[in-house]
Design a protein around this nucleic acid. Sequence first.
RNA 1: GCGGGCGUAGUUCAGUUGGUUAGAACGCCUCCCUGUCACGGAGGAGGUCGCGGGUUCGAGUCCCGUCGCUCGCGCCA
Length: 602
Amino acid sequence: MHAYRTHTCGQLRKDHVGQSVRLSGWVHRVRDHGGVLFVDLRDTHGLTQCVVDQGSSLIESVGKWRHESVVTITGSVKARRPDTANAKMATGDIEVYMDAAILQSAADVIPFQVAEDDGAGEDMRLKYRYLDLRREKMQRNIRLRNTVIASIRRRMWESGFQEFNTPILTASSPEGARDFLVPARLHPGKFYALPQAPQQFKQLLMMSGFDRYFQVAPCFRDEDGRADRLAEFYQLDVEMSFVTQDDVFSTMEPVIAGLFEEFSNHTGEKRAVTKTPWPRIPYREAMLRYGSDKPDLRNPLEIVDVTEVFAREDVEFRAFKEIIAKGGVVRAIRAPKVSDRPRSFFDKLNDWARGEGAPGLGYIVFEAAEGKGPIAKFLPAAAQAALKTIAKAEAGDAVFFVCDMEERAAKLAGKARDKICADMDIREKGVYKFCWIVDFPMYEKDEKTGVVQFSHNPFSMPQGEMESLDTKDPLDILAYQYDCVCNGFELCSGAIRNHKPEVMERAFAIAGYGVETIKAKFGGMYNAFHYGAPPHGGCGFGIDRIVMLFADEPNLREVYAFVMNGAFEDPMMGAPTAVSPEQLRDLHIKTDLPKEKIKATG
RNA sequence: GCGGGCGUAGUUCAGUUGGUUAGAACGCCUCCCUGUCACGGAGGAGGUCGCGGGUUCGAGUCCCGUCGCUCGCGCCA
């Protein structure tokens, strides 16, 4: 007989009755009845009830086992009587009568309960993560994550992609988020950076002739954390040669849709996945209709522009008119069938808008012929009719207004759209609603400085290429830049890349960078463009966010085995730590700490 | 860097208008119990109320500061 186990704790059934077996696992629960004693033994596969029968000499030693100790038991499988079988357990038809029991590793008193969720705080769970990971929900989440990644790999290989590794120690890049830096001992004063994404390497692989790359790529960004943002995370990183934007979509849609179909019933509630091809929504349209570049399409509400109504001469609502005169816009959201809602429904939304920094959330309720509400009196019948036409409002509907300069109005309208949907409880349930947001602008104007800069990836190909760069207002130039959005989450961002050095030079010049900058910062890739570069493009999917959606978890840390807290510290490992003076000397580094912030971190 | 919330037993929490010896559940320890499966029963241990200062006859409770955790803003091409 094997030293530790002949079966797992989830394996034994009626067929095994009469067999002599050995099981190993953790003491999940103990029920001591004096003469007879039950131990639920747990491993990652399940639970088995093990029995110390009356008169057994084991009763004293087994009775002392603490929860979460690791034990090995040997015994015979017996069928449970019908009145003692447990239909809730997979192994509930049998139990193992112990002949021998070995305490392999005694557990101290545990800091929180494993057998049940006792609501222990996240700091405790992270400090004792190995205990937390023993719990049923975490076992489920981590297994889900592993099978999702296996499925992704299988689907990508089946789609003709090859998986690559790219460097972890690489060069800091000037754009984007803050880099994690690693001092280079052999090169005093110089640093490696951990990759924010393998962006340049995957493009260089295209230049190397591999035409379908993917990687489950670790990415590192030194920005402040959020519930859905970690210092280290994983992307399904993808790049393809000789493709158009539509090729990228039609290649990735079946992979992602298939993945979502496969895992969409993980929580027990089967969810419908948007049929491919997914809707493609231009960025500007998304900002107008949804007030967001990551719209939640489960929300049926849409935003329309009603600036023309409030600009009419017969409308005397000065609060809006003054903003329109300065170039502002008015956006409207129709909320269907809310005229019977109590006044508090509208007041709450108004209070919410004030909390968002707006003066309020104006509205008109169309009960019958004429509109009611605080600003209805400023709009004569003809203007109200025009408003109803544009907003497609009917009797019983309300229309909410946001007025500001265009970008701010769009964003607030987007938040209001989400808030009204939540308050009305009309978000569609049981679905994954996908879309691609396309035609992102190539450039944007910095609000503070007024300087034109890249709005997304500087390596994106501008639509119209050189001609657009030469002839158009930079702010009107669109890029082959796209996002994949699901239920309001940005799952993926990508682009068709700019593989032409002369177009790249021009594109960087508009953003204020000379050729020297390109050579200094992206020299390796810029050189490669001069030796035969295929047209190429790709994208990167946030794997953790995908797993979050499947697991229906609100927090990224629930789908990682080992993870840092919100301040990017690991309470279990003690990272980050102070290092010895010798280590710093090796690296030619002296620290210059803020005085009030010195903590004894070891 | 900024803002909100939280901080009381090992864990999760309650704690009234500022007033006797700070409670509950789970866990832990001792004992009882032959069929439980969240077993049941009796008893017990366990607290610098995050820390520091202040107001007060009296502070877990009020005020100030500080630290920690958490959510968000900024940031995240």
